[in-house]
Design a protein around this nucleic acid. Structure first.
Lengths: 355, 355
DNA sequence: TTTGTTTATGATAGCGTTATCACGATACAA
DNA sequence: TTGTATCGTGATAACGCTATCATAAACAAA
């Protein structure tokens, strides 16, 4: 660094157009392009970013030089100068859970082609880690922020508010969004699934999943699920396992449940992987699903539709959530006023053979 | 933008320390912190980035002010000034395939805590899209680049070489890496699986997956798989489906295979999702696995170990690949010479009940 | 004591872009 | 014809930070 600076000072004063290609150590900048094309840097910048502001023939000449020199604009410098880095920060709990991937795909389906780089961070379910993460991500001066969940620490909320950029909270719904909010009500899911199972005549109904901070939204579902069953005076149970969700943990939950509450006749799992693991365990034990035990999952992941019997589950539009979030942001960033700041994207119980 | 600049020119000449907190519209910069702490900007910068270069009490005072003002350093400006943005560009084919997620987790397990932001891009299997993607990603002046696969267009390869930053190619092995290379030989996988099945006595062996550009590495496995069977004079078949890999596609492949080649007695699938889908289809049709048909998958995803019967598969250390890539890069970026530029991380056939 | 050596801090000059303003050239209206 | 608007282009000054060098202070050695 020191070297290159000193060098550029003493060696290349001006009229060093030809030299640029020889001394490969120096990065090609907009100045090199401008010199080679015999124009000012602003014209190059315009040719690249606002093509219609430059006359056609000049534009062509510049683009040719850009191509020849292999010039790649430095976005970091551009970001500093323009005050917009063309980046969007995204925070999800983890990549280790299949739920967030379709959501990210939704974002990736629109944002990059609109010129925005996604800066992805995972908080691994630690709300305190989220603060540092957000600080880091804000340091990149993003044009917008997308964050999974609506429950944040006070500091996090403050940072997000003071960042003065559009914020979208997704995956959950709140009365009091920071800015924009796209999701569905996990409380309503709990009510709906409880009623669904109770209406079918099941009498001993369990919730199985991870509780506590590790699955804030699952816990919300569990609470309203249990509350609804209580109201309907139906026997209810809870089994919990705080390991990262997986098919294997689903199996463990089922083993646990059968041991503690052999009378159970229906289970609502926190997600489809858990439900599938439980189903596989039932198959191993020759427990018939749904005759002996009914199983309902959550998310409508692919696995739910493919196992035998197919898993009844709650369909949640994750890809669409991502896409919608991206779409809202892009409109907002283009200056269009976005009408609805809070969108309930809903959910749907998909009934298959497991209930 | 125009506004804020004009304002800062006319309104705040100097000695405006108190004003900063009042006019909330202005972002807090290192200058504000320096003024408030009564030091120079360099000292603030040092207190934040090289704490041991600043005396203890001064450091404390500065950090207190930073905290009070809620100052978040602008990484874009810092990146421009220092020439290192503290970012690492990563290119994977897609997020839609479970293989790449553990690899990303491996990267995320080391890079962010070392202060590097991951810039993730997906090329959706289009090698021509990769060129633009790389150009975009290089524009961020990353400190390193990680790219899945070893087969690139000439232009891509040139850009990668000329970027003059460490490059790691992963997921595959090549004799001629751009820089560093971590992976395993897909050709060897094909040979090993073919021998494995033939040694077990299967006589009619198929490969099922997507071919062509869409699964370059799968195609490599297929080729050596078929070549090995040919050498051993074993009957072999290929079925192909170029839709994005999923459990459902596995089912379709199985349907297709049974129709075209009912005599088949063993199948090597391009990945475990496909294999699981095929297994489910067999269950539906009451075809016994492995008695009627043996199935072997690829990747050792969780689903392989959890279905009944458990799927024989090829274990590939994806998380480790990511972690190792991150580790190599970090060492290289710290200036340590990295000895081996090409690491064969190997694979392992995991035998379960499906063969 | 004087001199040399470290250590802590600050002033300054960029880093590579882009927003802004100014300017000359052309087109159009009066 | 003269004046006014429009268009295309370039000079310049930021953007917010950090590398570098200079300087002051503290310390060690002579």
């Amino acid at each position: 660094m020191a070297l290159s600076r000193a060098k550029s000072k003493t060696v290349s004063n001006d009229a060093q157009i030809a030299t640029a290609s020889k001394m490969q150590s120096k990065r090609i900048t907009i100045v090199d392009v401008a010199k080679a094309a015999g124009v000012g840097t602003m014209t190059v910048s315009r040719a690249l970013n606002h093509p219609d502001m430059v006359s056609i023939d000049l534009r062509k000449r510049i683009l040719k030089v850009v191509e020849e020199l292999g010039f790649i604009p430095n976005r970091v410098a551009g970001g500093l100068a323009s005050g917009t880095a063309k980046a969007i920060s995204v925070i999800v709990p983890t990549l280790n859970h299949p739920v967030y991937v379709p959501f990210l795909e939704g974002l990736y389906s629109l944002l990059p082609q609109a010129g925005y780089q996604i800066l992805l961070g995972t908080n691994e379910y630690q709300l305190d880690a989220e603060e540092n993460l957000i600080a880091t991500l804000l340091g990149w001066q993003p044009d917008a922020i997308v964050v999974a969940g609506v429950d944040h620490s006070v500091r996090t909320r403050n940072m997000l508010t003071q960042a003065r950029v559009p914020v979208v909270e997704i995956m959950d719904l709140t009365e009091d969004p920071i800015d924009m909010n796209i999701g569905f009500s996990h409380e309503q899911v709990g009510v709906a699934t409880a009623n669904f199972l109770a209406d079918k005549g099941y009498k001993h109904i369990a919730y199985a999943g991870m509780l506590s901070q590790l699955d804030l939204r699952g816990t919300k579902r569990m609470k309203s699920f249990v509350a609804t069953l209580k109201r309907r005076k139906t026997a209810h149970y809870i089994v919990n396992n705080d390991k990262p969700s997986s098919i294997g943990v689903g199996k463990a939950l089922m083993v646990d449940l059968l041991e503690k509450h052999p009378e159970v006749d229906a289970v609502f799992f926190a997600n489809d992987d858990l439900a599938a693991g439980a189903l596989f365990e039932c198959q191993r034990r020759k427990i018939r699903v749904p005759k002996d035990i009914a199983i309902i999952g959550f998310n409508d992941s692919e696995i739910a539709s493919q196992v035998n019997p197919g898993l009844t589950t709650v369909s949640t539009p994750r890809f669409e959530m991502g896409r919608l979030a991206a779409d809202m942001l892009l409109r907002r960033l283009r200056g269009t006023r976005v009408d609805s700041a809070r969108i309930d994207i809903g959910f749907r119980i998909v009934e298959r053979e497991s209930t």
